[in-house]
Each structure stands twice: as structure tokens, then as C-alpha cells.
């Protein structure tokens, strides 16, 4: 059973490595969006410090959103998706492998770069661990929910905008608890509750999203 999972995971990571320019573009986008904020709201350190958690989270969310279309598009065009759907192994398995590979190649770099960007916005020292943990718990949820949207909009014209319209409302709770965790840490109330809720959300998304995504892929390739 694990064979298919491992095969898909290994192949997608290999593809991400061979096409690593895409990953770098995502990271560059993340960095540049964060850098735009001081130009927009002014470079007043107190203001930047106050909005830092929200800005970092929104930028990470957008970076994740903009790379979602890559998740199934190529496989859809070249016929690999059909072959995967004809696998004798359950579709949920390889969907999870694809989402995991996507997160490892897109979400994880974003999580890794976020603290550096925190420095640019003068985020307070104590908040860094919570920032990293909240992103590490939150971005997989974004990837799982986004995978459902990416599967539904597969091959549609204007699919990118439609994908954003479909998944952004679903991303709101993740943003609230993710950015909220960092702010709660800064305000001294402690981030435990937020992080537990994010963890719960991740468990829920892991349990439900792969099924919805597999069903959506069947619908979209029919």
C-alpha cells in the first residue's frame, strides 16, 4: 500500500528539485509582498512591529495560493492523473503524497524564510518560535484545502482567479488562528490555545480533505 505513496512522494519531490526555479519564484514572491508593506504603510518601526504577524501570515497564504495550480496541472495535461486514478491503490493515498510533496517543496521553504522576513519588520524576539510553529501547522492546512480547490478548477479557463475565490474564504480561519497565535504570544496571553486549534484544524483537514480532493479529481477528469 505504501508503495504508491512513496513512489508519488519521491517522484514529486524529484520533479520539484528539477524544476526548482518554480519554488524560488514562490519564495521571491513571498519576500517581495512582505517588502511592499513598509512602502505602503510607512517605515515607522512601531507600526511595522504591530502589523508584522498579520503581514507575514497573509503573504505566506498568498504565496501558497499562487503555487496551488501547480499541484495537478502538469499531471492533468500529460495524462499521469488518469493513470493515477486507475491505480488499484486508494486515491486518498497518492493524493496525500502529492499534497505532502507540495508542502515540502513550497510550504516548508516559506516557513523557513518567514523568520528572516520577521527581522525586516522588527518582529519581537520572543515571537519567532510561535511564528514558525504556527506557519508549520497552518500551511499544511492551506495546502490540503487548496488541493480540493485546485482539483475542482483543473483545466478551467480563468482557473486561477476561480481557485482564489473558492479557497480564500476557507483560508480565513487558518489566518485568524495563525496570525492570532503570534499576536497572542506578543500580548502575553500565550499562544497555546491558538496552536492547539491549528493542530486540531490540521487533523480535521487531514481526515477530510484528501477524500474530497480525490472525489474532485474524479469529477474533473471525467
Amino acid at each position: 500500500m505504501l508503495n504508491t505513496f512513496v513512489a508519488v512522494l519521491r517522484r514529486d519531490l524529484l520533479l520539484a528539485w528539477r524544476g526548482r526555479a518554480d519554488v524560488l519564484v514562490t519564495l521571491a514572491f513571498f519576500v517581495i509582498v512582505v517588502c511592499l508593506f513598509p512602502f505602503g504603510v510607512g517605515a515607522e518601526p512601531n507600526l511595522l512591529r504591530a502589523i508584522a504577524p498579520g503581514v507575514l501570515w497573509v503573504a505566506a497564504l498568498l504565496a501558497c495560493l499562487l503555487s496551488l495550480h501547480r499541484l495537478f496541472a502538469q499531471d492533468h495535461v500529460d495524462g499521469t492523473l488518469e493513470q493515477l486514478l486507475l491505480s488499484s491503490e486508494p486515491a486518498v493515498l497518492w493524493v496525500m503524497a502529492k499534497v505532502l510533496a507540495f508542502w515540502l517543496s513550497t510550504g516548508l521553504p516559506v516557513v523557513a524564510v518567514a523568520p528572516v522576513l520577521g527581522l525586516l519588520l522588527d518582529l519581537e524576539q520572543g515571537a519567532y518560535p510561535v511564528l514558525v510553529i504556527s506557519l508549520a501547522l497552518g500551511t499544511p492546512i492551506l495546502a490540503l484545502l487548496g488541493a480540493v480547490g485546485a482539483a475542482l478548477t483543473l483545466g478551467l479557463r480563468g482557473g486561477g482567479m476561480l481557485l482564489a475565490l473558492l479557497v480564500l474564504p476557507l483560508f480565513v480561519p487558518v489566518l485568524i488562528f495563525g496570525a492570532g497565535a503570534v499576536e497572542a504570544e506578543l500580548s502575553g496571553t500565550g499562544a497555546t490555545a491558538h496552536l492547539l486549534l491549528l493542530g486540531g484544524g490540521l487533523a480535521g483537514a487531514l481526515a477530510l480533505a484528501p477524500w474530497a480532493c480525490a472525489a474532485a479529481l474524479r469529477v474533473s477528469t471525467e
Binding site: 517522484r11 524529484l14 500529460d78 495524462g79 488518469e82 486507475l86
Partner: peptide, 15 residues
């Protein structure tokens, strides 16, 4: 028990 080869060859260019 099925082998299906469709129109698209299911080939990724980078591999």
C-alpha cells in the same frame, strides 16, 4: 486487472 494507455502518454518531460 486493467492496463489503460490513453491518448496522452503520461510522460513527464523532466523525468
Amino acid at each position: 486487472e486493467l492496463l489503460y494507455l490513453g491518448h496522452a502518454p503520461a510522460l513527464n518531460d523532466l523525468l
